[in-house]
Amino acid sequence: MQLDLNLLAALDALLEEGSVAGAADRLHVTAPAMSRSLGRIRRTTGDQILVRTGRTMTPTPYAIAVREQVHDLLQQVRGVLAPSRELDLATLERTFTLRWHDALVALGGPALLAAVREQAPGVRLRFIAESSIDTPELRRGEVDLAANADSPTAPEIHADRVAESEQVVVVRRGHPLTRVKTVTAARYAAAEHISVSRRGRLGNILDDALARLDLTRRVVVTAPTESAAFEFARGSDLVVTAPESTARSAAADLGMVLLPLPLDLPPAPVYLSWHQRYDTDPAHIWLRDLARTALTGAVSGEGRTAR
């Protein structure tokens, strides 16, 4: 059986007004048109809905029983077809899942959480680890917001480039490279390196840049995260190359030294990515704005609190 949602609006008006004429005025249709709708409702439900009692119409017991349910259903349908764009942060209750690069969680996560808790205490954030393989969580709706250095290629995934950070060389205090006047590309290549790769790859764009100078480097170990790589390097002569935004904390917390990278490389970008289904979702727009502010400020070193 095919259902006509117009009949739901007509039934609601008939039960509220108690007459065909009143329901017709309410829905801005003619009385004959409303009378035809009442006939269709009677055939669909098998109930008279309204019966004449003298000069007035009286609802049947069935009509009285379903009156509130019909009204609530109609309001739900209207809410689905014309959703409110108003966002009440004070009462918003929602859990967002974020898949961010681990360094970005450490840099921008606290500022984002502080801003969220201040504005919408009913919102919860779930930061989950990045995978070592390409995964479709954004497309499937399992992740609300991703943040990493990858620009998405799928047309349904939208992204903003929210920040960028220059690459630097990170070594322990007293490392041989700290005792030379200038870290040249040749000296950089001659050192032993640790590569940061979630997939365990030994090579990356650094090797391409060195190859253009007829230089090669030796990667002796890989680590899945920058923080793990810094731990390797703090007690050895290994060299880590990482975004300056991430390396700042290593210099402050681990006593590492930052040196300029003697290669012509573009800065490491930070992309905020989401599925297009959330483009016009008011709560998601609000979260994206806070995340953009938190990441931009953290990567640029302008602060750790999003406003």
Rank of each mutant, 00 (worst) to 15 (best):
G18H: 01
R124H: 06
T135M: 04
A242T: 11
N204F: 12
E130I: 10
L81C: 08
R139W: 07
D150C: 11
R124A: 06
D160V: 06
P152M: 11
G200T: 06
R172T: 02
S151M: 13
G141S: 07
H193S: 01
A115W: 00
R292D: 15
V105G: 11
W100Y: 13
L113R: 06
D12G: 15
A146K: 00
I49N: 02
V29T: 04
D12H: 13
V20I: 11
I133W: 13
V221G: 06
D150W: 13
D144I: 05
T58H: 03
F127T: 06
L98T: 04
A252Q: 15
R52H: 00
Q76D: 15
T225W: 01
A120E: 09
L81H: 10
W286R: 10
Q76F: 14
R277I: 09
S151P: 11
D289G: 12
D214L: 15
G303C: 08
P176I: 01
E93R: 10
V105Q: 14
A154S: 12
G141W: 03
E142F: 09
L87C: 14
A191I: 01
E137V: 06
D264E: 14
T44G: 08
A111W: 00
A233W: 00
P243G: 14
W100T: 08
E244W: 03
L258A: 05
D134C: 05
E130A: 09
R248Q: 02
T241M: 14
V170T: 02
V51T: 02
S273I: 08
A247S: 06
V257D: 04
S236T: 07
L107M: 05
S195A: 12
P83R: 14
R172C: 03
V196W: 07
L238M: 04
R42M: 02
A191C: 03
G54F: 11
D4A: 07
V105F: 08
V168Q: 03
L50G: 00
K181F: 14
P282I: 11
D144E: 12
E118Y: 09
P176H: 00
P260I: 09
R217E: 03
E231P: 05
P260V: 07
P32T: 05
L112G: 01
A209I: 01
S131T: 13
S35G: 13
A186Y: 05
H284Q: 08
A229T: 02
R173L: 11
P267I: 11
D253Q: 15
T45E: 08
R292M: 12
N6K: 01
D253M: 15
E142A: 12
L261F: 12
Q276Y: 13
T53I: 09
A63C: 14
A65I: 07
A185P: 02
V123A: 04
T246L: 12
L73K: 11
R277T: 10
E244F: 07
V240I: 02
V196T: 10
P121K: 14
P121E: 14
S236D: 05
A120W: 07
R307C: 11
A242L: 13
N148Q: 13
